[in-house]
Amino acid sequence: MELIIQNLSKTYPNGVKALNDISLTIQQGMFGLLGPNGAGKSTLMRTIATLQDADSGSVFLDDLDVLHDKQKLREKLGYLPQDFGLYPRITAEVMLDHIAQMKGVINKSERKDLVNSLLNKVNLFKDRKKALGTFSGGMRQRFGIAQALAGNPSLIIVDEPTAGLDPSERNRFYNLLSELGENTIVILSTHIVEDVSTLCSQMAIICLGEVLMQGKPSDGIKELEGQIYQKSIAKEDLSQYKGQFDVISTQLKEGKLSLRIKSETEPGSGFVPTVTNLEDVYFSYISQKVDPITL
């Protein structure tokens, strides 16, 4: 199973070019879409989830034309949006049952088992008879995950899924996703690098509507192996270093400014080589488009 996105473009009426000739090939398994806020991730997610049309380009799930055969795609889709609401006066149990029905689980007892098992998986079984309006943010997010998984979808899109979850909830979520079946494409759209590094076998980096990199996380790291250097500096000297080196990220560590640069050769000046991580890969691509300096 393959999701092929070709030359997808979208400009909003206010002039914002959200997707700029995007092409991606996504195989089965976990695919991480990494990018800063405003990169176009949600636009891309919504387009695949049949909520929006594109100006040009195509999206094919095997031979299913996603942009023009929306209903057929919806039969296979599980979607966890970035921001969503629920009917406040309906209980979790009733709502999930309803959603399962909407996802084609027609058999009543089959549905009941499915609902109970899903709620249990996201640790909401004991809250199943409470009205959704009483749920905290984290509980709502977990419910969202449950409904995305209902009906055995083969294409699952999760948009910023770990927002609002505490560390243990996040781990639980990682475990849940990793249990997903073989013949499933999961697109995980996030700005949290750890999500991708933990779960995804493939990834892409998107910024300002363009794909900057696509491939395996390990390949990305290998590419930058040995090119990342680190040094602690004084804040006032930053602009000086910016002029001289290819600065990809800055961070405050123990009150001092920690600079990471990319350099194919030994930079000297007190820089120490460090182990490349996925964050470095991310920042090195992003910095080509936007200023990564956080000061």
Partner: peptide
Amino acid sequence: HRSQSSGYSVISDTFPVK
């Protein structure tokens, strides 16, 4: 407008109902 006002429409609009 219920789906839209409650924010549920981002989920429900993706169901394969006509």
